[in-house]
C-alpha cells in the first residue's frame, strides 16, 4: 500500500508544477484506448455467452447481439438433452478429489525438497525439472495401456491418479517455501513439535495464499481436463460436463442456444473459485516469483 501511495503523491506534485503537455496526453489516451480494446476483446465472449443463452440457435448464427426471450426454453432443452446433475457431479467429484490429492502430495514434496536438502535429492529435483518438458502426448499411449492393464479404465482413479504428483505444482511449492520464515520453524522445534506437526500446524496456516493460488490452478486444470478423461472414461454415465457439452457441439446442427446455456453452467464453478480467491491468488503468485 505504501509504495503505491508514494508515486501518487509525486505525480500530484508534478501535475501542479508542470504545464499541460500534448504528447503525454496523446500517449495516455492511446494507452487507455488500447487497454479498453483489450478489455473489450477479453470480456465480449462472456457477454456473448450470456446473450446467446437467451436466443435461438438461428439468431446466434446470424450474430444477434441483443437479449432474447429463449432462456427458459434453452434451459429446458439442456436439462432434457443431458443428465445435468450427473455430469456436473462427475466433474465436481473428479475436480475435488484431484485438487485435494494433488495439493496434499505435491505441497508435501515441494516442502520436503526445500526444507531437507541433500545432494541426492537435488539431483532427483533436477531430473524432475527435465521431465517437465516431456509433453503429455508422449505419455498418453503408454499411460492408457498401463491403466487398462490395471483394469482401471472407466474409474475416477484412472482420471485422477496420473496427475496427482504434479511436477509443476511441486516446483511452485518449493519456490514459495523459500519465503517461509526459518524462525517460525526453529521456534516450533524449541516448543517440541516434530517435523510433521510443523508442516501441519505452522506451515499450512502460514502459506494460505500459496495454497489458494495452487487451488485455482489445479482446480481449473482438473475441471477443464479434456483429453485424458476423453480417453479413459468410456461409459456414458461417467462422462464429465466438459466431455458431454463438447460432444453436443460436434453434431451437424448444434443447438447453440442450449449449448451456450450449458457452457454458462460449466464456467460458473471456475469463475466463482477465481473471484473468491482472487486476492490470495495474486499474493500467492507474488510469493512464488519472488
Amino acid at each position: 500500500m505504501t509504495d503505491q501511495a508514494l508515486p501518487l503523491a509525486t505525480s500530484r506534485a508534478e501535475r501542479r508544477t508542470r504545464s499541460f503537455n500534448l504528447p503525454g496526453f496523446v500517449a495516455r489516451t492511446i494507452k487507455y484506448l488500447l487497454l479498453s480494446l483489450a478489455a473489450f476483446v477479453s470480456i465480449f465472449p462472456f457477454f456473448w455467452m450470456v446473450v446467446g443463452a437467451t436466443n435461438r440457435s438461428v439468431d446466434i448464427g446470424i450474430g444477434k447481439a441483443t437479449f432474447g426471450d429463449q432462456l427458459f426454453i434453452n434451459a429446458a432443452n439442456f436439462f432434457a438433452t443431458v443428465d445435468a446433475p450427473r455430469i456436473f457431479w462427475n466433474s465436481a467429484f473428479i475436480a475435488l478429489v484431484g485438487t485435494v490429492l494433488t495439493l496434499a502430495i505435491s505441497s508435501l514434496a515441494g516442502y520436503g525438497f526445500e526444507m531437507f536438502r541433500s545432494k541426492f535429492r537435488e539431483r532427483i529435483f533436477t531430473l524432475m525439472l527435465l521431465l517437465l518438458s516431456i509433453p503429455f502426448a508422449a505419455l498418453m499411449v503408454p499411460l492408457f495401456v498401463m491403466i487398462s492393464s490395471f483394469k482401471l479404465v472407466g474409474t475416477v482413479a484412472a482420471v485422477v491418479l496420473p496427475g496427482i504428483a504434479s511436477i509443476f505444482i511441486i516446483f511452485y511449492f518449493r519456490q514459495a517455501t523459500k519465503a517461509f520464515p526459518g524462525e517460525l520453524r526453529d521456534a516450533a522445534r524449541v516448543d517440541g513439535l516434530n517435523e510433521w506437526q510443523i508442516f501441519f500446524y505452522i506451515y499450512l496456516p502460514t502459506m494460505r495464499s500459496t495454497y489458494a493460488a495452487a487451488i485455482i490452478i489445479v482446480f481449473m486444470a482438473n475441471w477443464n481436463n479434456y483429453l485424458w478423461p476423453l480417453i479413459v472414461l468410456n461409459k456414458p454415465e461417467q462422462k464429465t460436463a466438459t466431455l458431454v457439452i463438447s460432444s453436443l457441439t460436434s453434431s451437424y446442427t448444434p443447438d447453440f442456444g442450449m449449448i451456450l446455456f450449458g457452457t454458462i453452467l460449466a464456467t460458473l464453478p471456475t469463475l466463482i473459485i477465481f473471484f473468491l480467491l482472487q486476492r490470495r491468488f495474486v499474493e500467492g503468485m507474488l510469493g512464488a516469483v519472488k
Partner: peptide, 13 residues
C-alpha cells in the same frame, strides 16, 4: 478462467 469447452463453443459460434 473459462472452461476449455466454454471457450471453444463460444469461438465456434
Amino acid at each position: 478462467v473459462t472452461s476449455l469447452i466454454a471457450y471453444s463453443t463460444l469461438f465456434k459460434s
